[in-house]
């Protein structure tokens, strides 16, 4: 993991295996398939349910400070706990959960490189036993969206500014507008196909190898820099609802050390449907 800007944000499966009983560490699984954790998870891991726990049920938004604190307490997470996320699909949802934790400034968050698939491929144990931890002691600040989250109007201003970059991390077919949804996935309700003007297309999963681990720092740098996504720019990433782009946000921020990267979670399901916003095909 050498060469990454913040190598401490990544741990390998062996590190996790060695810290299963470490009271300062909480392993957290966040998956696209909401039942995977229940079917079998890393011993001692807690479940983060992105539908039920991270989203606000009424407003299209994330949970507020009070509910985040309650969530942390219930998972046995304190302010000084090291939280290691892992999940299915190359850690796609794990990075999404990590990004939400960062909206509340949780200090020590990490990703288990390779995710659930690598843990299983190495024949490491899974359990259905749900752990119970003493309540955490947690004091969260108000959610701070400014640093790592972008909103629609900011994106509109962004694309007219020099020195900015916009990354569309969806599939090439979604980017060109040929498809309104991910290949193999059902249509999810965008009225128009295409992308936000000026965006370049770098599909999120190009950042990982076949075994779900991240590519080397050099390979990643080449991937993004060759498309004009350079560290001197103010970068915004988007996808469909902001989950795939949180993966790219993680790569640019922690592995390549870009200083200014935001995730536009409104993404195509907002932009592609919004009245008065331009698109490109």
């Amino acid at each position: 993991m050498s060469g990454y800007a913040h190598p401490e944000a990544l741990v390998d499966t062996a590190w996790v295996a060695d810290h299963l009983d470490d009271p300062k560490v909480r392993i957290a699984e966040c998956d696209e398939d909401i039942l995977l954790y229940d079917q079998g998870h890393i011993p001692g891991a807690v479940k983060i349910d992105w539908v039920g726990e991270l989203n606000d049920p009424i407003v299209r938004d994330y949970l507020d400070r009070e509910r985040f604190e309650q969530l942390m307490v219930s998972k046995g997470i304190s302010n000084d706990t090291t939280v290691v996320f892992y999940g299915d699909k190359h850690n796609w949802w794990a990075t999404y959960a990590l990004w939400v934790f960062k909206l509340f400034g949780h200090p020590d968050v990490r990703i288990m490189n390779g995710g659930r698939a690598k843990w299983i491929a190495e024949g490491r144990p899974l359990t259905r036993t749900v752990p119970s931890y003493p309540p955490g002691e947690y004091h969260a600040p108000e959610r701070n969206d400014a640093a790592i989250r972008a909103f629609r109007d900011q994106v509109l201003a962004h694309i007219r500014q020099p020195g900015t970059a916009l990354v569309d991390v969806r599939s090439p077919q979604e980017y060109t507008g040929e498809r309104l949804h991910m290949p193999e996935y059902p249509q999810e309700g965008a009225l128009r196909g295409g992308h936000i003007p000026t965006a370049v297309n770098i599909p999120w999963a190009s950042a990982v190898r076949e075994d779900s681990t991240f590519k080397s720092a050099d390979e990643l740098r080449e991937l993004y820099v060759s498309k004009g996504i350079t560290p001197d720019k103010d970068v915004i990433a988007y996808c469909r609802i902001g989950e795939r782009s949180s993966h790219t946000w993680f790569v640019l921020t922690y592995l390549l050390g870009y200083p200014k990267v935001r995730n536009y979670d409104g993404s195509w399901t907002e932009w592609g449907n919004a009245v008065g916003l331009p698109i490109e095909k």
């Binding site: 909401i34 539908v51 996935y185 059902p186 249509q187 999810e188 309700g189």
Partner: peptide, 13 residues
């Protein structure tokens, strides 16, 4: 109340 709209779409197929 349990599954995301995306999953609901998938299973309806």
């Amino acid at each position: 109340h349990v599954l995301s709209p995306q999953r609901l779409n998938g299973i309806s197929y």
